[in-house]
């Protein structure tokens, strides 16, 4: 057990080092920044899908609400950037509370329902009549607080936090009870686990995570339109990265994101015209030949994957 713990700590440490020194090796900092964004979101999806079985197609909704929560905090309340990030996480928490009845759904119904919820959030935020508050279709300009370096550090901390949380779930009683609920909610309830309370807690935790990430993203890019932060492909990326690496593990989303997002950018920069085609074929091949993710190659052989 202690050895497994060590492996976990090692992964977090490596991750931290990788992204801490990354920008000094490779100067395109925003590419590395966005890789961290997707990795953190992939961990969010991992927590929700890997441990509770809910696949959130509309995960981007929390991301966008976090970004807008932070933007409103800066533009209307004139708070400093760090406070704005926290308020961004808080607004995602509120959105998560309002949307928690979605957890009554399951399977494809939940996925579609959460997708619809994120589209509603997008349509409300970008609506003309909320222009004095959100900027509506005119978008947001936070040039006043623009700070590439600090936002990068904050993002790094968020990523480490998210990864550590997955590590905790992976090795704690709480994580075990989540998996028990995922496999059989009725027996879990009988075994004395508070199914509803536990699920809602995880749901809100992932909402806050996406909100904080979204807020930091908003801070980092500082000028954006609603469709930039409510872009459905953000959800899709996070989900695909998680599934590619393998859910319910710490390492899966990390490796999935590095490989696929790296590939995404490599193709995007070298042969962009075939990009969508290659990506689509890759995703299909993944589902057909590696339905349980890269990590299943190891676990199938009985190797423990953190």
């Amino acid at each position: 057990m202690r050895k497994r713990m060590l492996a976990n700590v090692l992964i977090i440490l490596l991750l931290f080092l990788l992204f801490a020194v990354g920008p000094s090796i490779y100067q395109n900092q925003s590419l590395i920044f966005q890789m961290m964004v997707f990795m953190a979101l992939a961990q969010g999806v991992n927590i929700l899908y890997g441990f509770t079985g809910y696949l959130p197609f509309g995960y981007v909704g929390f991301f966008g609400i976090g970004a807008y929560g932070a933007a409103i905090a800066v533009n209307l309340l004139h708070v400093p950037a760090l406070v704005a990030v926290i308020l961004g996480g808080f607004s995602a928490l509120l959105a998560g509370l309002v949307l928690s009845p979605l957890l009554r759904l399951s399977g494809a119904y939940f996925s579609i329902g959460s997708l619809a919820a994120s589209e509603i959030l997008y349509n409300v935020v970008s609506n003309d009549s909320l222009q004095p508050i959100t900027g509506g279709p005119y978008g947001v300009n936070l040039a006043g607080i623009f700070d590439e370096q600090t936002s990068y550090v904050v993002m790094l901390l968020l990523l480490v936090l998210a990864t550590a949380f997955v590590t905790y779930l992976r090795s704690s009683r709480f994580g075990m009870s989540l998996i028990a609920i995922r496999e059989d909610p009725v027996s879990a309830e009988m075994a004395g686990i508070h199914v509803v309370r536990t699920r809602v807690f995880v749901w809100l935790a992932t909402a806050v995570l996406a909100g904080l990430v979204g807020a930091t993203y908003a801070w980092h890019i500082s000028v954006f339109y609603p469709n930039t932060v409510f872009d459905l492909s953000v959800s899709i990326f996070a989900i695909v990265f998680t599934l590619f690496g393998g859910g319910t593990t710490v390492l899966g989303p990390v490796v999935g994101t590095i490989l696929l997002y790296g590939l995404y950018n490599a193709i995007g920069i070298s042969s962009p015209q075939y990009f969508q085609l290659i990506y689509g074929v890759l995703i299909m091949a993944l589902v057909l030949f590696l339905p349980n993710g890269l990590m299943s190659l190891l676990t199938r052989r009985g190797i423990y994957v953190p």
Binding site: K3, R4, L6, A7, L10, I11, L14, L15, L18, G22, I25, Y26, N28, L31, L251, V254, V255, I258, L259, G262, N265, A266, I269, S270, P272, L298, I303, Y304, V305, P306
Partner: peptide, 28 residues
């Protein structure tokens, strides 16, 4: 565990390097 950790490390390092190379070398 050691093997896993080591392979993970190399994977991370190689990939990071990979990303750098492929991104810089081929500007269209």
């Amino acid at each position: 565990i050691l093997v896993t950790a080591a392979s993970a490390t190399t994977a991370l390092a190689v990939l990071a390097g990979c990303g750098t190379n492929s991104a810089t070398s081929t500007s269209q």
